[in-house]
């Protein structure tokens, strides 16, 4: 069954994915809203930047983050000037890396959801006396439930499976930065196939269940369009 370090890796992975998802939902909401409503010309450039993690090898992202975390890098210099510990090989370094890595998986579903709402429900709410924030809370959020569910699940699941970025900036410290995917790799390296199986099959099954949940919920919500 699972060994002590495996359980630690599982907990760290869940904590990492959960923290990253919450941060991404908070930051992704205004970003996706801006992308869905702006007519600015820089929108295309911003969209391309957000989509970069979809195509870049995670090691590229990890490499540059590692450079940025170094004492001479912009992030490392800032943290040391503020008297904070270095982010390299730390949990919060992983959170930052994961947030960048999973950003498109959260922003894109939110943006699609906001775009498909159209301006109609917002205009109706405005004529009925609702100010901008009120409109967002009373109309946009409830009508974007499906978008938020998709964004949260994809962001969480994608962070669960991350490997390359963590390998570059995490340092594989058991109990601190060792996540599931790396634990599996270590087991395979050490020819401990049965332990690798427990983790790998568990990850496979839980990912499948999560996606199954999204797709069935998606079908159920599908009819709920503005009428």
């Amino acid at each position: 069954m699972l060994s002590q370090p495996d359980i630690a890796a599982l907990l760290i992975t869940l904590k990492l994915a959960g923290t990253t998802t919450i941060i991404l939902l908070l930051l992704g909401t205004p970003l996706a809203w801006w992308l869905a409503t702006t007519r600015s010309r820089v929108r295309n450039a911003i969209e391309a930047v957000i989509a970069l993690p979809l195509v870049l090898p995670p090691t590229v992202l990890g490499f540059y983050l590692l450079l940025a975390f170094s004492p001479d890098g912009p992030i490392g210099a800032t943290t040391s000037a503020l008297g904070l510990p270095s982010m390299a090989f730390s949990f919060w370094g992983l959170v930052l890396g994961s947030a960048i890595y999973s950003l498109p998986f959260v922003v894109q579903p939110l943006q699609n959801s906001f775009t498909s709402l159209g301006r109609m429900p917002l205009e109706v709410a405005a004529t009925l006396g609702a100010g901008p924030l009120d409109r967002f809370i009373s109309v946009v959020l409830p009508l974007s439930k499906m978008g938020y569910l998709t964004a949260a699940v994809l962001g969480f699941a994608h962070t669960l499976g991350e490997f390359g970025v963590v390998l570059m900036i995490g340092g594989n410290i058991p109990g601190e930065t060792q996540v599931l995917s790396i634990a599996i790799y270590d087991h395979v390296e050490a020819l401990e196939y049965s332990q690798a199986h427990w983790l790998a099959a568990g990850l496979l099954l839980s990912s499948f269940l999560v996606l199954l949940m999204i797709y069935s919920a998606n079908r159920r919500f599908h009819l709920m369009k503005i009428t």
Binding site: M120, G129, K225
Partner: peptide, 30 residues
């Protein structure tokens, strides 16, 4: 004056009820 402060009632060409609210909640929204 912004829309929400004009107090203007609009009935649009296509019905524009909020799908996530009941008829009663729609009626009372404004």
């Amino acid at each position: 004056r912004p829309v929400e402060e004009r107090r203007v009632g609009v009935v649009f060409q296509n019905p524009s009820l909020f799908p996530h609210l009941t008829v009663e909640e729609n009626l009372l929204y404004g």
